[in-house]
Nucleic acid binder design. Structure first.
Lengths: 180, 180
DNA sequence: TAATACGTACAGAAATAACCGTACGCATTA
DNA sequence: TAATGCGTACGGTTATTTCTGTACGTATTA
């Protein structure tokens, strides 16, 4: 095995691992391989270069890049005199990790929160309605209690994500260099 | 609309929201609906009851329950005199949230970590090999630097998850009751 | 203004996953 | 030991997602 082949093989091994685990971020393995390619690339790449490198269609590259852009894992860079769009990886891993929660988790929590608050309001109406049977009123009270516990939990999650967004979490779990 | 219908509708709204967002945990919407059903259920349910309630096959229930068990979102409970397996939701949301990272994220981090450490070892061999060209040696050094930065990041992630696993994170982001 | 080239919507094809019904291994009961 | 009934592995089917090639809107250049 020659030296360049060894280097390539070393990279492929890492890229495969990244591609396999990137589903934690809700991304496809293809997007993961693209991310790995950008991880190793020493310069920003165009869609055509990605297409060439990964042997996939330009459309797929366009889609994958956008999904990575949506999560702030990749950024569009502007280079003087270059007509094509260029993309490179976001170097700040921590920022990227925090953004993921700020983007994806926050939305999910907000949706659940909203549904539960609406639900509580409806149940309260039901309880206040004199026509409601005792049986149902009792169950509505139980449901409200459950939902309110859950809302407390979402509030906690939001506060955790706040600490990500403001990076205050780094006061608690600091970025410390391993070898000092 | 009668009272029982209103109650049901209130529940469905919440269950739909949960089912829609549970993909953050790598689960299918079906598993999410099952989770919602268990959320509202006041007693542990058997596979047959779930099947009946959701109008799905018993096989699907079996698979969904297991995926929820794997994430510690649901637990098997034993009831005297009952031959069937009974399942109920894990009430401790925080524990469940922490377990998710301890289970899923830890594995992913470990895999990536391992691939990168192996990769670094190979690259180091390549650098030490006198037959390696200068060009490749230079690139190998660049790659090693990138990988080591990444390993530092994974170390940070591991420390964050440690604080989840030990619940020390609650010292930083406390569970405080909203209305006091 | 005309020409060129870029990135993406769109629709069909390929791959993947979700689901169901059957059948089986295993445990509990009689 | 025989009989009953549980949960799950397996294979086929359906549904969903992923990918590709074409075609188009838009922006830049001449």
């Amino acid at each position: 095995m020659n030296d360049i082949e060894t280097l390539e093989r070393s990279r492929t091994m890492v890229i495969d691992a990244i591609a396999q685990n990137i589903d934690l971020y809700g991304l496809t393995p293809s997007a993961g391989r693209l991310y790995g390619l950008l991880f190793y690339s020493n310069k920003p790449l165009t869609l055509d270069e990605m297409k060439e490198e990964l042997g996939m269609s330009k459309t797929s590259m366009s889609v994958s890049v956008r999904s990575l852009l949506d999560l702030n894992m990749v950024e569009k860079v502007w280079v003087k005199g270059e007509r094509k769009d260029l993309y490179s990886i976001k170097e700040d891993w921590y920022e990227c990790f925090f953004d993921f929660f700020t983007i994806k988790w926050r939305i999910a929590i907000t949706m659940n929160n909203s549904a539960m608050e609406k639900s509580i309001a409806k149940l309260q109406q039901l309880i206040d309605d004199p026509q409601t049977s005792d049986k149902i009123r009792e169950q509505a009270l139980i449901d409200i209690k459950k939902l309110e516990e859950r809302l407390e939990y979402y509030d906690w999650q939001n506060r955790l994500i706040d600490s990500f967004e403001t990076k205050e979490i780094l006061n608690f779990i600091p970025i410390e260099k391993k070898k000092d």
